[in-house]
Design a protein around this nucleic acid. Structure first.
Length: 306
RNA sequence: GCCGAGAUAGCUCAGUGGUAGAGCGCGGCCCUGAAAAGGCCGGCGUGGGGGGUCCGAUUCCCUCUCUCGGCA
């Protein structure tokens, strides 16, 4: 029996993955699974450029608007949810088409998640308190003592990772650097195709800037204002636009500045995404031109699949 | 046309007689339970053109060009 096929469509924010994906999905009898860490949240539609309900009627989208923005979400949950949906699609005879720009989520599906422990609130609070009192250097030395392997890979200022490594050690007595070696990916059991969309940097940045302009036209301000009435989870509040608009609502700067920051942070984000994707040799890149329509892009993608 | 100010990084500008910095922008990279997050690295330059003084000029002098004010 041939291996079941899973397709990924990756690419930087704003490049036009979603629109092309819908057309591609139609052609290949696929349903779309979002590979995006922010589109899972409800009430964040304009902010995350989620597919419209009209688009969603054309092709079923999974893992969109699944979680309330007051709740936490993370890679492990994503993996669990996404694999479940994959199985469901296979039973229906559909091909899963993962679409998104969250490189870690992609990697976690394809390369696997090493068996570790979930976050532990109590341990974290303690560690964070210690970090505050003793400073980065001391904290880093602490990690160096218990897990030199991890310390070698983590910069002393990257306290978020240091906390995680220590958390794993305190919880399990094992080194995260050792655990990380045990990951089992999907490659053996499935036929995985990975497509990437790219556009020259200047035009990509133009698109990103324009997309932010568009968000404002569509009513971003009231959407975010509404969102801020809730106590957003730590993860949900990381979406680009929330912090930036909050500064405007708090009268720290004018609206134009909020928009400028959103555009800049989105550009930086796209750049980081490209860095992440660049080193992944499994990605088959499809270069698009500035003015290509979603249908044209979808056609190029489709050709790349055969 | 005259008077004044200026011309230094992609932009805004600082500074110095011993071949230049800052902020923003931009580029590169790392990444496993917060990943649209978090962290690291990089000045990316014919100092407007030409001449002079000097051991040595981006810095001082002359000149040309351009820009911005003001006066005509």
């Amino acid at each position: 029996m041939p291996k079941k096929k899973i397709i990924f469509l990756l690419g930087p924010t704003g490049i036009g993955k979603s629109a092309a994906a819908i057309i591609l999905a139609k052609k290949i009898n696929a349903e779309i699974i979002s590979c995006d860490s922010m589109q899972v949240y409800r009430k964040m539609n304009i902010l995350t450029s989620k597919a419209s309900s009209a688009q969603r009627k054309k092709i079923k989208h999974h893992l969109l608007s699944k979680i309330d923005p007051t709740r936490e979400y993370n890679v492990a949950k994503y993996r669990q949810d996404a694999l479940l949906i994959c199985e469901k699609l296979f039973r229906k005879g559909k091909t899963p088409l993962f679409v998104g720009g969250t490189g870690l989520y992609y990697s976690i599906i394809v390369d696997g998640l090493f068996p570790a422990v979930p976050q532990d609130k109590a341990i974290r609070t303690k560690l964070e308190k210690q970090l505050k009192q003793k400073g980065n250097k001391y904290f880093y030395r602490k990690l160096l003592k218990v897990d030199a392997g991890a310390a070698g890979k983590i910069h002393p200022n990257d306290t978020r990772r240091i906390i995680r490594a220590l958390e794993v050690y305190l919880k399990t007595g094992e080194c995260i650097s050792q655990l990380q070696k045990n990951r089992v990916g999907l490659g053996k059991d499935y036929n995985i195709k990975v497509l990437g969309l790219n556009l020259d940097r200047q035009h990509l940045y133009d698109r990103i800037n324009q997309r932010v302009d568009k968000m404002f036209e569509l009513g971003l301000i009231s959407e975010v204002k509404r969102l801020l009435k809730y106590k957003l989870s730590q993860t949900a509040q990381c979406a680009i636009g929330i912090r930036e608009l909050k500064g405007y609502f708090d009268a720290n700067y004018p609206l134009a500045e909020a928009k400028r920051l959103m555009q800049r942070n989105s550009r930086h984000y796209a750049k980081r995404q490209l860095t992440w994707f660049r080193k992944d040799k499994r990605i088959k890149w499809v270069d698009i031109k500035q003015k290509e329509s979603p249908a044209q892009v979808a056609l190029k993608l489709w050709k790349k699949l055969s």
